[in-house]
Simulated assay, not measured.
Amino acid sequence: MTQKRNIADYNSRLFNTGRIRRFYHMARFDFVADLIKRRKINVEQFLELGCFDGRLLQHIPQPDHYVGIDANVEGGLDLAKKNYIDDSSKVFIESLSPENLLTFESDSFSAFASLETFEHIDPDQLDAYLDEVSRVLNGDLIITVPNEKGPVLLVKKLVKRIIGSRSDPYSLAELFYASIGRMERVARREHKGFDYSRLVDQIDHRFELISVKGIPFQWLPPVLNLTVAIHARSRITSVELDG
């Protein structure tokens, strides 16, 4: 019962607490849906990391085969399994480790998505996750993460302090360094100290980087947006070129 209550609270907090908050949290789903349609991305074999309750499935063309992986911290994965219990094309796996990706064959997915998840991954595991995603994916990669540096972060934290939030883990020195992009001077803890630029570099090392955009306002650069959306594609190997 506790998990169900947590799921309801979580979804209500993100999607039903005012129009502005809903607009912000829906922006990532709208971005992915638009990108898939506009770029004609093949979603037949779809892998999602951090799927929670499978909400993304409501916004994309239905894959022939879908695998959703999630830590199930708030019970979202349990709800996804319940909602899709009669659909054998949807598989949900509880996992906290990149080792679970080892069970999939190379090039077995045509698309990969991960929304607001990579900021939660232990920095020591990021390379392992990206290596495995690179191995199992032959297609498009879409990742969204929060912008936790620069002027956007400074404004967010100042607003929180003005309204009296006491849950801010930043010291004044860390807030200063994060606001000028000196993330090496900020201790990492989930969102705190997360640097989307480093993630972009790690992705670029393994994939063909297509675009890095800010959302919800794509006409603004990523540094001035609340969320950063990364689109990349599997590199074409020499074997594929010869074929």
Rank of each mutant, 00 (worst) to 15 (best):
R188H: 12
I7Y: 09
I215K: 08
S110T: 13
M1R: 12
I41Q: 00
E119S: 02
P216C: 00
R166K: 14
L57N: 03
H191Y: 08
G214Q: 01
I143G: 01
F31H: 12
G75V: 03
T117R: 02
L241S: 08
V133N: 01
G243I: 10
E148W: 01
F118Q: 06
L96W: 13
K90M: 05
L79N: 04
D242S: 12
S12A: 15
F112Q: 00
L172G: 14
D168T: 04
E208Q: 13
V155L: 10
L172C: 13
V136F: 09
D53M: 04
V159S: 10
S108H: 11
E94T: 08
L101I: 10
R206K: 07
C51M: 03
V159C: 07
E44C: 11
S12W: 15
Y24V: 13
L175A: 02
L101H: 10
E132F: 07
Y129D: 14
K156I: 09
Q202S: 14
L158W: 14
I69S: 02
N138M: 12
N147F: 05
S134F: 09
A178G: 11
K160N: 12
L241W: 12
G243Q: 14
L57W: 00
F176M: 04
S12T: 15
E132V: 06
L77N: 07
L209P: 05
I69R: 00
S197R: 15
E174A: 01
S110A: 06
S167N: 15
M1T: 12
P123I: 02
G193M: 00
